[in-house]
Amino acid sequence: MIVFVRFNSSHGFPVEVDSDTSIFQLKEVVAKRQGVPADQLRVIFAGKELRNDWTVQNCDLDQQSIVHIVQRPWRKGQEMNATGGDDPRNAAGGCEREPQSLTRVDLSSSVLPGDSVGLAVILHTDSRKDSPPAGSPAGRSIYNSFYVYCKGPCQRVQPGKLRVQCSTCRQATLTLTQGPSCWDDVLIPNRMSGECQSPHCPGTSAEFFFKCGAHPTSDKETSVALHLIATNSRNITCITCTDVRSPVLVFQCNSRHVICLDCFHLYCVTRLNDRQFVHDPQLGYSLPCVAGCPNSLIKELHHFRILGEEQYNRYQQYGAEECVLQMGGVLCPRPGCGAGLLPEPDQRKVTCEGGNGLGCGFAFCRECKEAYHEGECSAVFEASGTTTQAYRVDERAAEQARWEAASKETIKKTTKPCPRCHVPVEKNGGCMHMKCPQPQCRLEWCWNCGCEWNRVCMGDHWFDV
């Protein structure tokens, strides 16, 4: 396979590697080409510095992935760790964990309700045991953590790749202090920090972006993250068709209702045909949960890209028209025109101005929308079919299609509260000796007794199943 190397943020060049090629071997190839010592090179990928003893497969490097290699003399205490030698983080029983690669970060837990604080980093599902597709590297999971809308060759929703760059020099040479644990960490600028490894760059702020994971991409090709779309790892039924499908869209209502993408497309087109989208002054033209839940309008309007190009163009047109109407304007009634106009409040005669090729020149009556006339309008008909009709959803289907309910059931079956801080902690095999993952707590306690870890627990039921 081919990976592209950008040395000291210059133009990239291809390097041929195998899945079992080590990072140090990659350094040696680059060092020979650039005429520099291999031990002064640092390989940066997806916000993480890659260790010498890791392989291309370990690092989730795919065909035509772009890695950054910078030349920086080692500072005291760094060289041993980078070589894969006596790194205290690798000691058996050590409590410190390697910062998780962005290629394996899962933010789907952050669609849980606000009262489930902490689960994004504490609760991990076991539903990723799908067998890898044919042709994928051994052991590589097909679980997708992110979804994007690819405006490039795909023109559809695709699995996405999370990447990070330095907000100062805009190069992907920043190593994160810690990985993101929720969508806010990724979507809110300057929320996460790190250290830029580019020479002479003092940058410390992280800037995240997404790429389409279905095809090789260049540095400049980015895609918009659709953070309401998630892999259906909890096997929730769709609120409309009641099938279990994946991926799904999880509405931001209190129940976190789930809808499959085909039904979401149908829901949007139906509402669009009836012009029953909601115009929100802050958000724009949007839709609420299909069950009509309060405070559930979709905030990231790129989710409506699921409509496809033709329907999305209609959505944008109707949204612009609705904006004009909300501002007190009118639409030209001549067939084939429909231009938005903003006449004076007491102006009865409205002319669709033909300047700049935008208007048709038609003069019409503001009251009856017919060709302009003197005197009273002959008839004014009330528009028919403008009443909002509820999208029919079966109550039982709505009850079963809740992301929140599956989460709470998982928590109930696989977790116990920490005796000190009461945060839910998952036990997935292993011994009875637990350690609270909350940095402010870190209590060592017994899963069996529910009390602080002691010699009695150690001698009596340390390794009970």
Rank of each mutant, 00 (worst) to 15 (best):
F4T: 08
S9C: 04
P14M: 03
V17C: 07
V17N: 00
T21S: 11
I23P: 00
E28D: 09
E28W: 03
R42M: 10
V43R: 01
L50S: 01
W54L: 11
N58T: 10
N58F: 11
L61Y: 02
V70K: 02
G84I: 12
D87A: 10
A92T: 13
C95Y: 12
C95K: 13
S108E: 14
D115E: 14
D115G: 07
V117F: 12
A120P: 15
V121Y: 12
L123F: 09
S131M: 11
P133E: 12
G135T: 13
A138K: 11
S141Q: 11
Y143L: 14
N144P: 10
S145I: 04
C154S: 01
K161F: 09
T168D: 10
T173W: 05
L174D: 00
T177C: 09
S181R: 12
D185W: 00
L187A: 05
G194M: 06
E195P: 05
Q197M: 12
A206E: 02
F208L: 03
F208W: 05
F208N: 01
A230E: 03
D243M: 14
P247H: 06
F251S: 02
T270R: 04
R271S: 14
R275N: 02
Q276I: 05
V278T: 09
H279W: 10
Q282A: 13
Y285M: 04
C289W: 00
C289F: 01
A291V: 08
G292W: 03
G292T: 05
E300R: 04
E300A: 11
L301P: 09
G308C: 05
Q311G: 05
Q317K: 14
A320L: 09
E321T: 08
C323Y: 13
M327G: 09
C337M: 03
L341Q: 12
L341K: 06
G355T: 12
G355F: 10
C360M: 02
G361R: 07
E370R: 04
C377M: 02
C377V: 02
S378N: 15
F381T: 08
A397F: 10
E404Y: 08
A405G: 10
T414M: 09
P419G: 03
V425M: 12
K427T: 06
M432C: 05
H433V: 04
Q438M: 04
L443H: 14
C449V: 01
C451S: 15
E452Q: 15
N454L: 02
G459N: 15
H461N: 01
